[in-house]
Design a protein around this nucleic acid. Structure first.
Lengths: 263, 263
DNA sequence: TCGGCCTGTGAAAATCCTGTAAACCGAGGC
DNA sequence: GCCTCGGTTTACAGGATTTTCACAGGCCGA
């Protein structure tokens, strides 16, 4: 399910041991992580579209409190976890009241840090049910997850839930070839049984409905022996079209990445 | 809305010193607090309409983990803070992954406990920036939260409390498809048990009462396999057959354009 | 070009989901 | 205690959706 979007985390710390160990863990968990040596203007943090920030204010020095306050104030949606050595109760209370979500003492076990980050994010997501994520657009398709439906020129494709989730997954991975097993695993939520053709069947249904409402485009491409790839392409109308015309169109869509997930 | 709605807290612990000190603090902070000597069925916790729960699982003994899991599962909106003596990293990680929001080691300073509870709750409160305002209008429906009632042309629909809350939730999210679990969670206040049909039943009651007073409109639409969507639409009563115009073609393609799951 | 996979299709069979009605239950009011 | 009312559960039927099948047609390497 797409509710498990990968976590984007930034780490502001200069304790190389801690950074190394934690990075290894977050990488293993599939999170996107960025390590920063020192204070970064909150504006840049915004641009990073982070979910969480782990910070040791001592690397900032004097202005630590002010920095924390500014970050928490400017990014109320960001999960902020302080992780630092020696601290007094009143410092922790001050930090928490300032807007910090959790305060961990060093030394600490990286697994606990991860668990605490998850706890912070879990709560935050629950609070903002299906926040942003405006409609996704592809070709003349508009995919609206708040309606569990896709539209072309305002007309609903009338997708069923499975069809919609499949389309959404494909569209999210635009340009990538997804193997059947991977698709099944992510849409159905469990491993695909050997010989199951459900994915193919749903791809067909999707193609039918897409064709019905948006016949001028091709969205789903088959990769023989591998899987499917979503990539909206206007259908080059007549094959008899002037060579030149077709050619140029081709160049526009030519930059396809044929990557095959190493399996 | 006053962001300072008083906090309702329950404390499950038998360490009288801790209980006393903490109670004094929470009282001073103006929180409503209830101390419980041991495990309480989650159902009763629901009835208490708590914001947060501070618990020392050791007072429960063996079933501590199971209890935590049950509570966190049933009340995803409840802030759960574990406060206990001696604990290992793996215990803390297990707890946090289970759904616990914060894990504090005893002995600890009551002020820090308060600050951590606040940090946990802070997230959840920001969730509804929803400025309560005048009556909401949808179709020929007027929803007045000050009266816990909806009206059509001045006539009350005679909604019960649940019916009203359900309608209000739906109307607030006009246009969005809400999943049953989400509806249940927000109206009933705790997690929906698998197989519970309460939402459907109340949707039917609502539809009946809406139909009785406003038969010219359709308000609640069903999204098969997903949930419900509120969107007032005047019912296109007379489908004055678009006449002969495309008659011949129509017969051939007629079965294609109907769609849009109106419910 | 041939044969062995692999994918596209259409439809039947199996499941799942929702609308509806009615039985149940506990809390109050009389 | 008896009755009413709101809320919960349960049972069932009709549909919608998903799965499963069998076969046809296409892609590729030998």
């Amino acid at each position: 399910m797409s509710s498990q979007q990968t976590i984007r985390l930034a780490l502001i710390d200069d304790d190389s041991g801690f950074v190394t160990v934690l990075s290894k863990r977050t990488a293993a968990a599939g999170w996107q992580q960025r390590t920063l040596g020192g204070a970064i203007p909150p504006e840049e943090l915004v641009a990073m579209k982070l979910n969480a920030l782990v910070i040791d204010p001592t690397v900032i020095g004097e202005d630590g409190w002010a920095y924390l306050e500014r970050v928490c104030g400017m990014l109320p949606d960001l999960g902020v976890i302080v992780c630092t050595e020696r601290s007094t109760v009143s410092q922790r209370v001050r930090g928490l009241r300032l807007g910090v979500d959790d305060w961990i003492g060093k030394p600490c076990h990286p697994e606990e840090v991860l668990a605490r980050i998850e706890a912070v994010l879990r709560r935050r997501r629950r609070a903002r049910p299906q926040a942003e994520s405006g409609p996704m657009v592809a070709g003349e398709l508009e995919i609206r997850s708040d309606r569990f439906q896709a539209f072309v020129a305002g007309a609903s494709l009338d997708l069923t839930r499975r069809e919609f989730e499949l389309l959404q997954l494909l569209a999210e991975s635009e340009g990538q070839v997804l193997e059947r097993e991977a698709i099944y695993q992510r849409v159905w939520g469990y491993a695909m049984a050997h010989g199951d053709r459900s994915v193919d069947v749903f791809i067909r249904k999707l193609r039918q409905k897409l064709e019905k409402r948006s016949s001028g485009w091709r969205y789903i491409h088959t990769h023989f022996g591998v899987g499917y790839r979503f990539d909206p392409e206007p259908v080059s109308g007549a094959v008899a079209a002037p060579a030149a015309a077709a050619e140029s169109t081709a160049t526009l869509v030519a930059d396809e990445q044929e990557q095959i997930p190493t399996g």
